[in-house]
Write a protein that binds this DNA or RNA. Structure first.
Lengths: 238, 238
DNA sequence: AAGAGATTGTGATGTGAATCACATCGCAAT
DNA sequence: ATTGCGATGTGATTCACATCACAATCTCTT
């Protein structure tokens, strides 16, 4: 597996595929454009395809009756996402919001099945990719449930470092702006709570701001708060 | 896919496999006994195999520094579980507690890979199984995070109905005893909170007790509380 | 049948986080 | 400069749930 050097940005979740197999997958998809602000799919739409994000940014969200909404995943260039399950008429359970103009490859589940059928090595890699995605969900689950809101925030900051972090001396700059509200929606808290928690982290010198970007100065202190288990970077992402 | 009739118990998560493929999987595993009270594996053990539960009951738990522990999954006869991921030295992130004397089939990841390689149709079914397991985690995530502790409890009761429920006229009896503490550990609450919430549900006639078993009398009211989306029964389980 | 230990039930109190209500800041459009 | 508006910052209040403390009950053992 190709592995991320320290200051690399955007390690795609498809890193676990070999070049050849990634190419095979790319051969069966058709390209599609989606504008920032649009939706790739909605909750309740049929879920019979995967998406490969060639360019742009897409987040999966879930909202409840009261209109409160949660950001569950954020995907970037090179990431693949979507649902595969054994139900004939399976439905998406999330909304896919396009937050930056995107180019996506659409993979029909049928076509994928044929590919898996034909190429044993691809099937094995695909299984590992699915396992990776599942564990990513599980570790996030753990982080958000087990250590209160401060723990959830710290874990999210660590994940952001892994996804958007750029080394700067001892510090890590999160090279993408997130508003307090967005962070709040990622951890199921209110923007006010995030604001107060961030203020605390700043006061204790664990993070600071630099042109509206969050700079993590003491990664280890963040890790302590959310009882980080130092799981592989490819897994511990947003 | 074979589908559960209303009063059937223990619909295994391997239902999505065809008989033939299930047999193939069974052929590559070796049998093992595990006593109630023992552990099949611990957090941090190498994770290079899957488990097929032939008989008994096993739960996956996670505990934090303060010793508080969460029950994440409960597996029964016919269920398969374990981790598959692309890391060479992957570690288990949960503890597997054997709660009833069990017989398990152990499947080495290596052997599984060979099987997937050889049998395209099995690879496709396996992929769907993994997708199902992932969605199960995601829906549980949603239920536990989004609707407060009462929502989490109601969702858990619904899941217990799907896994252990027996129709009794209009009602559903959960044919397995769970203590308040166990329920609490499933939703990340305290036993006192569970006790009070259950008392409320009893008072409003939504559930009742019958020889220490929980009887759900108004499933729809439970569904309302946790904004149930009526996802497939095979998915909405403990 | 008695006693120990686990489980349930319930009040009082503490605490983290949501909610509400505003003030302030930064910035783009006019 | 002025207005508008989204984002940030902060106090006061409310609410959900944990914690503590203890009594009651149930269940298993011998």
């Amino acid at each position: 597996m190709r592995h991320a050097e320290q200051p690399e940005l955007h390690v795609a979740n498809t890193e676990c595929f070999s070049e050849g197999n990634l190419r095979k997958i790319q051969e069966i998809m058709y390209e599609m454009k989606a504008e920032a602000g649009s939706h790739l799919f909605w909750e309740g739409d049929p879920a019979d395809r995967l998406y490969f994000l060639k360019q742009g940014r897409i987040r999966l969200t879930k909202s409840n009756d009261e209109g409160k909404s949660y950001i569950l995943y954020v995907y970037n260039k090179g990431d693949m996402f979507g649902q595969v399950d054994p139900f004939v008429h399976s439905l998406n359970s999330f909304n896919a919001e396009v937050t930056e103009d995107s180019t996506v490859g659409v993979i029909q589940q049928k076509d994928l099945e044929v590919l898996l059928w034909q190429h044993g090595d691809l099937a094995v890699e695909f299984m590992k990719w699915m396992g990776l995605m599942h564990r990513m969900t599980q570790t996030k689950f753990r982080d958000l449930m087990m250590f209160g809101k401060p723990g959830a925030l710290c874990s999210t900051l660590i994940r952001l470092c892994h996804t958007y972090g750029k080394q700067q001396g001892e510090d890590i700059v999160i090279t993408k702006k997130f508003t307090n509200s967005e962070l709040a929606d990622m951890i199921g808290a209110t923007r006010e709570s995030v604001n107060r928690m961030l203020a605390d982290l700043k006061k204790s010198g664990i993070v600071s701001m630099q042109q509206n970007l969050i700079v993590v100065k003491k990664l280890n202190d963040l890790k302590t708060i959310c009882q980080c288990e130092n799981c592989p970077k490819d897994m511990c992402r947003i």
